[in-house]
Design a binder for these strands. Structure first.
Ligand SMILES: [Zn+2]
Ligand SMILES: [Zn+2]
Ligand SMILES: [Zn+2]
Ligand SMILES: [Zn+2]
Lengths: 140, 140
DNA sequence: CAATTGATGTAATAACATTACATATTAAAA
DNA sequence: TTTTAATATGTAATGTTATTACATCAATTG
């Protein structure tokens, strides 16, 4: 069986974490999420990390490796490659000034990397593509 | 002035850190490097981080964001794009079984990401591309 | 020599993440 | 429906990664 295509029923903690991330306009660290959820009964980092693990598994949240932070999936609903939520690989442009993150998918990039892997006999499990820089607003 | 193209003179600490990384066949965390250099008088993380900062600036070392670890530059000396050490963007294939890392440059990937950025008015500062998976040996 | 600059040493603390263990809830099986 | 297994949760402690703050030392330069 594959990853769920439509949103699975979330537990209470998963919903709380997902809602906080969805409302944020910038990536959030696990500890920032924790602070936002103190009033909802969150007390320990593990409550956040456990929820995040599931949301990552569901493809509803992404981890930004270069920031140690998390964002709600904002994958444009182009059904390219049949990716709904369980999309293949995705790239992020991260503004170092305002924190805004753009999520996008580039078919050609994906294929180039896949081809390299196939040629080398490397079996990809997960690909990270992150561009740090200045968004159009902040660069102006 | 641009990043130095030939290796600048390294300080003692920078040399020690670089040598340890060069000898390693897998990425090392800053604290692992620290432990390897205890006998050379290293006592505190900052000694490692300061050396790493310079080596990163010189383009002699790369940081693997998805591992929080560092590798000596192993950029194949293809002079594509005129990249010597101060190369543009580079990609890594990281084996999750044996730890081996392959560093490579894909011109086409670079251009696709640059084009996306240009189209969006995004000014890239640094690009991270990391493929986690199994190398040909471990996948066999 | 004074002043600046860059490198170093050390301690303390901050930020990010996991392990271990106990308890509760839910869903499937008997 | 009772038993059992699986999943979710609560809490504390600890482990790992990175930075701040401050003092010292060495080389350069005016
Ligand atoms: Zn997404
Ligand atoms: Zn911005
Ligand atoms: Zn390199
Ligand atoms: Zn391997």
């Amino acid at each position: 069986m594959n990853a769920p295509v439509s949103a699975p029923a979330l537990t209470k903690n998963q919903s709380l974490v997902f809602d906080v991330l969805t409302r944020s306009d910038a990536p959030m660290s696990a500890y920032t999420i924790l602070d936002k959820l103190r009033d909802n009964g969150f007390r320990a980092p593990l409550q956040v990390y456990r929820a995040l693990d599931k949301l990552l598994e569901f493809g509803m949240v992404h981890r930004l490796e270069s920031l140690n932070a998390f964002v709600a999936c904002a994958h444009p609903e182009s059904e390219c490659c049949g990716h709904g939520h369980g999309h293949g690989s995705v790239a992020f442009a991260i503004c170092e000034s305002c924190g805004h993150v753009s999520e996008f998918h580039d078919h050609e990039v994906d294929h180039r990397l896949s081809d390299w892997a196939k040629h080398k006999g490397f079996k990809p499990a997960k690909t990270t593509i992150e561009i740090r820089g200045l968004c159009s607003v902040c660069a102006a």
